[in-house]
Nucleic acid binder design. Structure first.
Lengths: 182, 182
DNA sequence: CAAGTTAGTGATTGGCCAATAACTTAATCG
DNA sequence: CGATTAAGTTATTGGCCAATCACTAACTTG
């Protein structure tokens, strides 16, 4: 397998493992095991653990943005809202991907607290471009709608992370109805 | 100093340290240093590291709830919304407290992923009672308003965690205006 | 004062973990 | 064929860290 292909599988494995354990709670050994490769080999593919985390985080944002983008494509704002909500709902059924999102928020915060302003930069940039600006664009500059969309997304993230069972959906009725059958 | 008083200072120190470093990224040594006590003594005050984290997390939720409660006391729902928003805004100027909130969400998620359903129980219970139910009560059963309040709170948490500078407030105009001077 | 209790410390241990170094195949190619 | 490159491994090291143990010093109280 080529190094580039391996890097891909490392990123996929890293999203799962870092999502579940967080940066400090995940060993490079665990990632290597999931990839099916020896632990030291990871350091041929990436300079260090932090770089693996960063790659996983950015991939995560890009994937999310791509799903939302595809869902909204060509639709007028009001239909786009619902379509994106449905798409996001389906996306976060992949719990590991959702958790990776949360993990990256706190990882940036931790780095910042430790005096490292650099680590968060690319992540903030990706978030702004792929999520915030994209929302604004989709809702044609309707800031209220765009912001509300993001806010409900973050509430859902939190509740799912906290482990509320999927049927306890406090957002039903506000976030567009996305239950099968409605 | 009595053991009970010490436990209090440990909880305060733990909120700061766990907030900055997360569960796995924080050593008991760091907490002990901040308290001004030897590391082994922590294990006289608490059975283990996890118990310290749990105590810090619950305290965090209770404090937040108390601040919101005091702010809303005696006000009709529409005024309460604004008062609570202002109070929350002021609360999260204490960055460490805010980060502890995020850290507890991902810690619960991690435990859950590792098959431990127990760890999250008291935290979920506190969140439901002190934040969700309390919101509903304050807004007199207006679920939409209550949910929106929580959703914007979570969005703010995320943006602040990500390190957006305080003047980049995408929520201005939707979350009640809370800028000094407005 | 003697005996117990409470607050606290120093030393240690066993395990984990990121990263490095040195080595091994296997394919490619002039 | 002989040399180079790319993919991958085993062994190791130095550091950190949760938790336990054994100990001390000060107060309290009959």
């Amino acid at each position: 397998m080529s190094a580039e292909e391996r890097r891909e599988s490392v990123i996929r494995a890293a999203i799962t493992e870092f999502g579940r354990g967080g940066y400090h709670g995940t060993s490079t050994e665990a990632i290597a095991k999931r990839v099916g490769v020896s632990q030291p080999y990871l350091f041929r593919l990436f300079p260090n653990k932090r770089a693996i985390f960063l790659a996983a985080a950015l991939r995560c944002i890009e994937d999310t943005a791509a799903v939302l983008h595809d869902a909204a494509e060509g639709l007028p704002p009001d239909e786009a809202h619902k379509a994106m909500a449905v798409a996001y709902q389906r996306l976060i059924e992949d719990r590991d991907r959702l958790l990776m999102q949360m993990q990256m928020y706190v990882a940036v915060a931790s780095a910042e607290s430790a005096g490292d302003r650099e680590f968060g930069k690319p992540i903030r940039a990706a978030w702004s471009e792929h999520l915030h600006d994209f929302s604004l664009l989709t809702f044609e500059g309707d800031t209220e709608e765009a912001t509300t969309f993001l806010a409900f997304g973050m509430l859902i993230n939190t509740l799912v992370a906290l482990g509320y069972p999927p049927d306890n959906r406090v957002w039903d009725g506000f976030w567009p109805e996305t239950r099968p059958g409605t």
